[in-house]
Amino acid sequence: MNGPAPLLTLNNGVRMPALGLGVCQSTPDETVSAVTTAIEDGYRLIDTAAAYGNEKEVGEGIARSGIDREDIFVITKLWLTDYGHDATLRAFDTSLTKLGLDQLDLYLLHWPVPSAHDTTVASYRAAEKLLADGRVRAIGVCNHTPGHLAELMARTEVVPAVNQVELHPNFSQPELRAFDVRHGILTQSWSPIGGVNRYGGDGTGKVRDPLQEPTITGMAEKYGKSPAQIILRWQVEHDLCAIPKSVRPHRIAENIGIFDFSLTPHEVAAIDALDTGARGGPDPDRVALDTFS
């Protein structure tokens, strides 16, 4: 067994592992075994979402693991079709039922919706109610820029505990990370190894595969690690929480095998310098309620 990952403290005192398993694009059939394998390998954080269609299987995997519920940190997310105050409360109930849980560790709004900001605010206020009622231990958002966060915080009471965003060496979002730090928001990285660059892209020609960067492959050779492990260790050195996705047992084990070495400040800076400013996923400023329908 690898791990365990160190714990990061959220702005309300809740502690969350610095590395977890993501299950975006994992089919329901693959998800149960991926979750059980990850837990056996030392993972204690599982990230899913209503939109992924595998919350039920995540819950099954957790139940089969035999690990006490309080030792597993579970995240799920509200999808756009359920934005609005009352719809959010109903969607949360549905997610909790599918997961087979009595309480959630972290509930996130999946995207900002600039064209329907009032609806986004209403959903976040519903999340605040869930937090106040003790049904979730922390709340936050995904894919929010500093501007989105500032607008949301101006109209709500609870500062998001987490902002989950696309973040990898070729798109490292330093300004966003700095904003999050100033406001006590923990930045969580989806596509932390740059997988989005292998199946997406923004059409500018700037998008590259971080796993192929000579800077990273050179460090992998030096440390006897894989390029993916070097990237995940870079995430840890920046106090980020990474949630790499895999359904392959050897990759799941490899991804958590990063706590027996560290990178030097010079090496971290060299990876920082790979940033192109080009995202591989959708632009949050362009998301609307019907964007993904």
Results as ranks from 00 to 15, higher is better:
L10W: 01
N12L: 06
V14Y: 04
R15I: 10
P17L: 04
L19I: 13
L21R: 01
L21P: 02
S33W: 12
V35T: 03
E40W: 06
D41K: 15
R44D: 04
D47A: 05
Y52G: 01
K56M: 13
K56V: 13
R64D: 14
S65Q: 10
S65E: 09
E70V: 08
F73N: 02
T88D: 07
T88P: 07
T88A: 13
L89F: 09
S95K: 07
S95T: 12
D105C: 06
L106R: 03
P114H: 09
P114K: 10
H117Q: 15
S123K: 10
Y124I: 07
D133G: 07
R135E: 11
C142M: 11
P146H: 03
E151K: 14
L152Q: 01
T156R: 01
H168T: 05
P169D: 03
R177L: 12
F179R: 00
L186H: 11
W190V: 01
W190E: 00
P192Q: 04
I193N: 01
G194W: 12
N197G: 14
Y199G: 10
R208I: 15
D209F: 06
P214Q: 09
I216W: 03
I216P: 00
G224T: 09
P227M: 13
Q229P: 10
Q229T: 11
L232S: 01
V236P: 01
L240D: 06
R251T: 08
F259T: 01
F261G: 00
S262H: 14
T264F: 08
P265A: 04
V268Y: 02
A270I: 09
L274Q: 01
G280L: 13
P282R: 12
